[in-house]
Measured scan of single mutants.
Amino acid sequence: TGTRRLSDLRVIDLRAELRKRNVDSSGNKSVLMERLKKAIEDEGGNPDEIEITSE
Rank of each mutant, 00 (worst) to 15 (best):
21 R>Q: 01
24 D>Y: 03
9 L>S: 04
55 E>L: 01
54 S>K: 10
39 A>Y: 03
5 R>W: 04
25 S>K: 02
21 R>I: 02
52 I>A: 12
29 K>L: 08
4 R>Y: 15
29 K>N: 04
28 N>E: 11
30 S>Y: 07
14 L>V: 02
9 L>C: 07
17 E>A: 09
37 K>E: 08
44 G>R: 09
36 L>D: 02
48 D>H: 04
48 D>Q: 06
47 P>G: 14
37 K>G: 11
52 I>M: 07
25 S>A: 11
33 M>Q: 10
55 E>S: 01
15 R>S: 06
50 I>T: 11
52 I>E: 14
46 N>F: 06
43 E>H: 06
35 R>K: 14
13 D>S: 04
41 E>Q: 15
31 V>G: 07
38 K>P: 02
21 R>F: 03
22 N>G: 13
37 K>F: 06
45 G>Y: 03
25 S>P: 11
10 R>E: 11
39 A>I: 14
2 G>Y: 14
44 G>F: 01
3 T>P: 06
25 S>G: 09
36 L>V: 07
45 G>C: 09
47 P>H: 13
9 L>I: 04
34 E>W: 05
44 G>Q: 04
47 P>V: 14
9 L>T: 04
1 T>Y: 00
18 L>N: 00
38 K>I: 05
32 L>A: 04
38 K>Q: 14
14 L>P: 01
37 K>R: 14
15 R>Q: 12
40 I>S: 02
34 E>Y: 06
18 L>V: 01
7 S>I: 12
9 L>K: 03
49 E>F: 12
40 I>C: 13
25 S>Y: 09
34 E>P: 13
49 E>N: 06
34 E>T: 15
53 T>V: 13
42 D>H: 06
18 L>D: 00
48 D>Y: 05
21 R>P: 00
8 D>H: 08
47 P>A: 11
33 M>W: 04
45 G>R: 11
19 R>P: 01
50 I>A: 07
12 I>W: 11
32 L>V: 05
27 G>I: 00
38 K>F: 04
44 G>L: 02
34 E>G: 12
19 R>I: 13
2 G>P: 03
54 S>A: 13
25 S>L: 10
28 N>V: 12
5 R>I: 06
51 E>N: 12
5 R>T: 10
16 A>K: 11
4 R>V: 15
53 T>C: 08
38 K>A: 11
35 R>S: 07
32 L>P: 02
52 I>Y: 07
26 S>V: 14
30 S>W: 08
15 R>M: 06
53 T>S: 15
29 K>E: 11
2 G>K: 11
55 E>W: 05
21 R>S: 01
43 E>T: 07
5 R>C: 05
9 L>A: 04
40 I>D: 01
1 T>I: 07
25 S>C: 10
32 L>E: 01
41 E>T: 14
7 S>V: 12
6 L>M: 06
16 A>D: 11
34 E>R: 15
52 I>S: 15
48 D>S: 09
54 S>I: 11
35 R>Q: 04
50 I>W: 12
8 D>Y: 01
47 P>L: 13
46 N>M: 07
13 D>I: 01
15 R>G: 01
9 L>H: 00
11 V>Y: 06
15 R>E: 13
45 G>P: 05
29 K>W: 09
38 K>T: 09
7 S>N: 02
3 T>C: 04
46 N>R: 13
2 G>M: 14
29 K>G: 10
50 I>V: 14
24 D>C: 06
55 E>V: 10
34 E>V: 13
16 A>H: 04
46 N>L: 07
50 I>Q: 07
16 A>E: 15
21 R>C: 04
22 N>I: 01
23 V>C: 13
22 N>L: 06
14 L>T: 00
1 T>A: 08
25 S>V: 09
54 S>F: 09
27 G>R: 00
54 S>P: 14
21 R>E: 00
5 R>A: 08
40 I>Y: 03
16 A>T: 12
27 G>H: 00
12 I>R: 15
7 S>K: 12
12 I>P: 14
44 G>S: 05
53 T>D: 08
41 E>W: 04
23 V>E: 10
3 T>G: 06
13 D>T: 07
53 T>F: 07
6 L>A: 06
37 K>D: 05
27 G>T: 00
31 V>C: 12
41 E>C: 08
11 V>I: 13
53 T>M: 06
16 A>I: 14
31 V>A: 14
27 G>Q: 01
24 D>Q: 06
49 E>T: 12
51 E>P: 15
51 E>Y: 12
4 R>G: 12
27 G>D: 01
46 N>P: 06
8 D>P: 01
46 N>C: 11
9 L>F: 10
12 I>H: 11
23 V>N: 06
51 E>T: 11
36 L>N: 01
55 E>T: 02
40 I>A: 02
19 R>Y: 05
34 E>Q: 11
33 M>L: 14
54 S>H: 08
6 L>T: 03
50 I>G: 08
49 E>C: 12
31 V>F: 05
30 S>T: 11
16 A>F: 13
41 E>R: 11
40 I>R: 08
42 D>F: 07
15 R>Y: 03
3 T>Q: 03
13 D>R: 02
41 E>P: 00
37 K>A: 15
4 R>A: 04
27 G>Y: 00
37 K>Q: 10
35 R>H: 06
8 D>L: 04
11 V>C: 08
22 N>W: 02
37 K>T: 10
39 A>G: 03
47 P>S: 11
31 V>D: 06
32 L>N: 03
28 N>R: 15
26 S>Q: 08
40 I>T: 03
31 V>S: 13
51 E>I: 07
27 G>E: 01
24 D>E: 06
42 D>V: 11
54 S>C: 08
26 S>T: 07
35 R>N: 07
1 T>Q: 00
23 V>H: 13
6 L>C: 03
24 D>V: 05
38 K>H: 03
30 S>K: 10
2 G>H: 01
